[in-house]
Write a protein that binds this DNA or RNA. Structure first.
Length: 271
DNA sequence: ACGGATGTTCGCGC
DNA sequence: CGCGCGAACATCCG
């Protein structure tokens, strides 16, 4: 369940679980998760070493170990990191690290859209895909003038531009939808027609939406909302709520298709 | 049973 | 080159 807030949540957990702890054993099934590298590298690279850091950049996680090796983790659509006691293997666990004290940290991903790439930490950090990312709004904040300048360079719909990881790193369908609602911007408006004032409102709305979502996930180890059978309510203002009332004006929320993704919006507020 | 789901990448066409 | 579109990836859920 991964956009910036979920990946940030994962990074905090991984820090708590792994940093300064020695890996006693590792396992990785041979799945698509390791496309581009080798599951055996995951099994052999970290045993006997301790994790030194777990960083997030956009939707990417970078884990570093004290032997100079590490791995990148992208959660795709359904990836997550979980900690479980030995013997309690979650369904669809694709790889795990076992630590002293009988803790096991699992990478779980039913749809296998996620990716793990093992390598030398320095080389992973220098990969083009990492360097191609735009500013991370949570880490770097958003400079409205820089965002405005960047949006001037494309006539794509603002909703689509916000999901472009080269413009801002970490926003996906949920956060782009929520931010545009908060900023009262029509999702189909061409990005290069947003004025500076609207861009400032958008920058604030993005940070507000990210904070809202992080708050909804709470401090625990398991982010429950959006989980199958979690029983927790949809915490969003409009995402997934087409047909329901706008929380601001009561108009019936509508949905449309943009670049293959569903956008939910208020036809009155976001005109 | 069918359609859609938080993401990315690729091929095709304009 | 820019951009939209559909498909693909694989599984679950309503």
């Amino acid at each position: 369940m991964p956009e910036l807030p979920e990946v940030e949540f994962a990074a905090r957990n991984l820090r708590r679980w792994l940093v300064d702890r020695t890996v006693e054993a590792a396992h990785a099934a041979n799945t698509r998760i390791f496309r581009g590298s080798d599951p055996e590298l995951f099994e052999t690279s970290f045993v006997g070493s301790a994790c030194t850091s777990a960083q997030r950049r956009g939707k990417l996680l970078l884990l570093a170990f004290d032997n100079g090796l590490g791995f990148l983790s992208h959660l795709g659509m359904t990836g997550k990191w979980l900690r479980r006691p030995v013997g309690e293997t979650p369904r669809h666990s694709r790889a795990h690290l076992r630590l002293a004290g009988d803790d096991v940290v699992h990478y779980v991903d039913p749809r296998l859209f996620g990716r793990i790439q093992v390598g030398k930490t320095a080389e992973l950090a220098a990969l083009p895909e990492l360097r191609a990312l735009g500013p991370d709004p949570w880490e770097d904040g958003i400079d409205p003038l820089a965002l405005h300048a960047r949006l001037q360079r494309t006539s794509r719909a603002i909703k689509v531009a916000l999901m472009d990881q080269a413009i801002l790193a970490g926003l996906g369908n949920i956060q782009a939808t929520e931010a545009l609602f908060l900023a009262k911007i029509p999702p189909e408006q061409p990005a290069n027609t947003l004025g500076i004032e609207k861009t400032k409102a958008l920058a604030e709305a993005i940070l507000e939406s990210l904070a809202n979502t992080l708050r909804a996930m709470g401090e625990g180890e398991d982010a429950s909302y959006l989980e199958d059978g979690g029983g927790v309510e949809n915490p969003f203002l409009v995402y997934g709520k087409a047909g329901q009332r706008c929380p601001r004006c009561g108009t019936t929320l509508e949905k449309m298709r943009q670049s293959g993704r569903t956008t939910t919006f208020c036809p009155f507020c976001q005109h």
